[in-house]
Design a protein around this nucleic acid. Structure first.
Lengths: 148, 148
DNA sequence: CTCGGTGCAAATGCTTTGCAATGTC
DNA sequence: GACATTGCAAAGCATTTGCACCGAG
């Protein structure tokens, strides 16, 4: 997805949410997210922006990340740690995570059967899903090799 | 599971973890957990213990909950909120959660197919699982009725 | 010109820590 | 008696909030 398309999505979401304004700070956060690779946390994104010369505050970063989540431009996860982790989500397929407890590595996977089962369970329980997150905690192959 | 069996599991885990001691505080936390229903947080457990006349500190509650998780007597979750949530886990089948974003209700479900898929994915990725948690966020039937 | 947004620093809320007193082994 | 554990209060950390100035519409 190109930057302009993302800007468009955010702007539309802001307008749709009442009287929210399309500011340069918000667009700067969005651009930083688009330039990111893999998972990141709010603090990391903040420092990356600062060191690139962008003038921004943590409060605005947190606030904007929530807005981006609302309109589906980022996903927000809570793994084992205290801090929330984010990743860009420009229409990527719905995926889940294997989290290595030794090295902290996160392996993503997609599984259609899994998604279908989820739908079945929701139907059965009369539940309308909005988002979901499967996290499997354990040890990755690399760590098993290096530690026996 | 009766209280003594649980005490046994904890004591064995303490011994197995080095030089950890089987203290009355730790057993008191375990008893409070066993008397609990559904999900709870550390603070809630602490206040329940205090109001039952148990003399205990928050630090000990947090510390002991971690020990109980290590030996599988409780499960620890992180849903959308800031605080960790726990539930007793005395050999209950592995289950997952539908979390209602309106009323906060948590609906549990068990699905064997889902567990099998999880195993397949781990094999494929050369990953050894230790625990897992699937959370589906959305709206429950009750809330949909009451709000249209 | 009118609000909503921003930056800053202080506040919040969950969790952990440091330390002297206490309890286990 | 040695040393892990406890309670307490203070510290830590991620996140939120209050408020005066700033800027988008």
């Amino acid at each position: 997805m190109n930057p302009e398309a993302a800007h468009d999505i955010l702007t539309k979401h802001l307008r749709a949410s009442g009287n929210l304004r399309s500011t340069s700070s918000r667009m700067a956060v969005l651009d930083a997210v688009m330039a990111s690779q893999g998972h990141f946390d709010a603090e990391g994104l903040y420092y990356r922006m600062i060191s690139n010369g962008t003038r921004i505050s943590k409060a605005t970063v947190y606030n904007t990340l929530d807005l981006l989540q609302e309109c589906g431009l980022v996903s927000k996860y809570r793994f084992a740690e205290n801090s929330s982790r984010y990743e860009k989500a420009f229409g990527r397929p719905h995926h889940h995570h294997l989290v290595c407890l030794q090295c902290g590595d996160i392996i993503e996977f997609v599984n259609e059967r899994l998604n279908r089962i989820q739908e079945d369970v929701c139907n059965e329980k009369n539940f309308v899903p909005q988002s979901s997150s499967l996290q499997v905690f354990g040890t990755c192959g690399k760590c098993r090799k290096s530690r026996g």
